[in-house]
Simulated assay, not measured.
Amino acid sequence: MKPLSLLYHVLTGAFLGYKALMLVNNAVAFPRLRPQPPLPDVRVSLLVPARDEAANLRRNLPGLLAQGAAEVLVLDDGSVDDTAQVARSLGARVLTGEPLPPGWVGKPWACQQLARAASGDVLVFTDADVSWHPGALGAVTAQWQRAGADLLSVWPRQRNVTPGERLLTPLAELPLLLLFPLPLLLFPIPSASAANGQVMVFRRSFYWSLGGHAAVRGDVLEDVQFAYRVREAGGRLSLALGQDCIGVRMYRSYPDSVAGFGKNLLAVHGGRRGRLALSFALVFAIYTAPWLWPLPGARWLRLASVAERPLTNFLAGRRRPADLAEGLLGPLTPLLMLPVYRRALRRQVAWKGREYRQ
């Protein structure tokens, strides 16, 4: 075997072996939420930042209001639709967002205002597109209490309906389930941090000890940065899968997925555009190239490229035939991600009518 071929064989084998190890580890170790009644001795504030979210609130706010929290607050962040009217008519307390200050990203500013108005000992930030099912709040607070967490973050189970949204949206879970070594949360290593802004559960006192969302005011990837700040300050971070308790429909089409992933991808790579190029080269070499050329170990690489998504979906609780059939997209995924990489390379990123410099 030629030296270059041997190097390719060793590197791809090591990368896929690491992913397989993480998948097995997380399948055993990852906490999963189970529905249960709310804890009677915990005062919870459910907090929803909302910008042009009228349609999502109509679907999801009733389930949130039915959880039995002490309060449900919705912040209307300069919406041009009837977000405020819908939230108010359904029974939530609605706050009118203040203008975005210099240096702030929209979502951290909305969350900061919500936290200032909240009265709970536990602050639960959740997005408007997240669905809370019966027993979800009890499951969340029980896991938060069991873990002794200063921050608990939950990955809702994805609900992908149209073929377009299936192309990329399920990739949101892959970094967590295939790359993140969960046991590192047991050690004081701040860089070993992960979080999902769709559901963030804070101990109120610890949240304000960090300054609230002001600690991540300028970060587009504010959830992961907040997790890092929590661990850096000596706080306890816990993660969980939403399973039957909490779900989400993130994007409604392939273009929506491109826009959503495109705003975060550069931050995921530490703001380094060179890392973006290396990242694309890696995934293309592993998942697409073996189908185009007779590379070393091509047979096993082809198998891995179609098996990865079904295995991850199964672990995340998505086990319908259509979910498992997503594996066929594996070899095409790097090509489908090209518009995301191109968007991430821009100096300005747009999201919900606002532009941020990268």
Rank of each mutant, 00 (worst) to 15 (best):
M1L: 13
L4I: 12
H9V: 00
H9Y: 10
V10N: 04
V10F: 09
V10I: 14
V10E: 06
F15I: 11
F15G: 12
L16G: 08
Y18Q: 03
M22K: 07
V24A: 13
V28D: 01
P31T: 10
R34W: 10
R34F: 04
Q36M: 09
V42W: 02
A50P: 01
E53W: 07
N56F: 07
L57D: 00
G63R: 14
L65M: 03
A66D: 14
G68I: 14
A69E: 01
A70R: 15
L73C: 00
V74G: 02
V80F: 01
T83Y: 12
T83H: 04
T83C: 02
A84V: 06
P99E: 05
L100I: 05
P101G: 13
P101T: 09
W104G: 02
P108M: 03
C111N: 11
Q112M: 02
Q113I: 11
R116E: 14
S119K: 15
G120Y: 04
D121L: 00
L123A: 01
D129V: 07
S131I: 10
A136C: 06
A136R: 00
A136G: 01
A139M: 04
T141H: 00
W144P: 00
Q145M: 01
G148M: 08
L151D: 01
V154S: 06
R157K: 08
V161Q: 09
V161M: 00
V161H: 10
P163N: 12
L167W: 14
L168A: 02
P170R: 06
L179H: 14
F180R: 02
P181Q: 05
L185M: 05
A194Y: 12
N196K: 12
V199E: 03
F202P: 00
R204C: 07
R204D: 11
Y207E: 11
S209N: 09
G211L: 12
D219W: 12
L221P: 04
Q225E: 15
Q225Y: 07
A227N: 09
V230R: 05
E232R: 15
G235W: 09
L239W: 00
V248L: 07
Y251A: 13
Y251H: 09
R252W: 05
D256M: 07
S257W: 12
V258G: 09
V258Y: 03
A259T: 12
G262P: 11
G262E: 04
K263M: 12
L266G: 06
V268N: 07
H269W: 11
G270T: 09
R272L: 13
R272E: 13
R275D: 00
L276P: 03
A277K: 04
A277T: 10
L282I: 10
T288E: 02
A289L: 15
W291M: 11
P296H: 03
A298P: 10
A298Y: 05
R299G: 02
L301D: 01
L301V: 10
S305L: 04
V306A: 06
E308M: 12
R309T: 15
N313K: 12
F314P: 10
R320C: 02
A322C: 12
L324S: 04
E326N: 03
L328E: 05
L329V: 05
M337I: 09
L338I: 15
L338K: 09
L338W: 10
Y341V: 11
Y341H: 13
R342I: 13
Q348T: 13
V349G: 05
W351H: 15
K352I: 02
K352L: 03
R357P: 04
